[in-house]
């Protein structure tokens, strides 16, 4: 735990050593509120809730998360620092978890900065606070799942652009498989089992049910198992191909 903490602190403060943190936070805040107000019809709906705000988060994460995760391991390989940290008395799990939690905490910080949206609806009406808490959790879990995927992909290459594109592609597929348009397309001809299966692995299915305010253990387990699975892949990849 102490060792994970040391890696975590270095990584987390690393975000603020470059303009990356500031740019990310500004872009996230700007886009998430722009989507909510202009496309989601935040005011037009006449309802005091944050649905129009949260519903675009998975789409925002589609390109914002790879921007964070692409450098996690690819940069270590490119600069050769992987040789330094892999020969310190730290285990691969310490490194993988420390990096992941730092990135996840950073995305959590971005979400925390959107709390003024919450104040706004509370000022305008009487929102269901339970639903909003649930939505924040759904959004953060989605970011976590995408980050774990991105971290694993970043460990495969020393090229950050490759890591970005591959991560965005994999996350896009995961999003698509739960998208109603895609599901309807399959529903017309594929057996029910296929449709159910696609919907079960889709991020949106689980995200939507949580944003509605229902915390179902299965949804939380879905995100948790995505995170665990990809971090295990990440650890295995680094162990096999440290030098690469």
């Amino acid at each position: 735990m102490r060792r994970i903490g040391i890696v975590f602190r270095r990584e987390f403060s690393g975000y603020f050593a470059t303009p990356l943190a500031a740019i990310f936070l500004v872009v996230f805040l700007f886009l998430s509120s722009m989507f909510a107000f202009n496309i989601g019809g935040f005011f037009d709906r006449g309802q005091a809730d944050l649905r129009p705000f949260f519903q675009f988060h998975p789409w925002l994460y589609l390109f914002l998360v790879p921007a964070i995760s692409m450098r996690l391991w690819a940069e270590e390989r490119r600069t050769g620092t992987i040789e330094l940290i892999a020969t310190l008395p730290l285990t691969m799990q310490d490194l993988v978890l420390g990096k992941f939690f730092a990135a996840w905490a950073f995305s959590g910080l971005a979400l925390l900065l959107t709390v003024p949206m919450w104040w706004t609806v509370s000022f305008l009406g009487e929102p269901d606070h339970g639903v909003i808490v649930c939505s924040y959790l759904a959004s953060w879990l989605t970011a976590g799942a995408f980050l774990a995927i991105g971290s694993a992909i970043s460990s495969l290459t020393k090229n950050q652009v490759v890591a970005f594109v591959l991560c965005a592609a994999v996350c896009f597929l995961l999003l698509l498989s739960g998208f109603s348009v895609v599901l309807d397309f399959f529903r017309s001809w594929a057996p029910n089992m296929v449709v159910e299966g696609l919907s079960a692995i889709g991020v949106l299915t689980h995200f939507d049910s949580m944003v509605r305010g229902v915390i179902d253990l299965r949804d939380v387990l879905y995100f948790a198992s995505l995170i665990v699975a990809f971090l295990m892949i990440n650890t295995a990849v680094i162990d096999w191909r440290k030098a690469a």
């Binding site: 050769g80 040789e83 330094l84």
Partner: peptide, 15 residues
């Protein structure tokens, strides 16, 4: 029990 200076002395450039 070992200290190691890797080839090229890699270190985190932003630190």
């Amino acid at each position: 029990r070992m200290g190691y200076l890797p080839e090229g002395a890699p270190a985190y450039p932003d630190m």
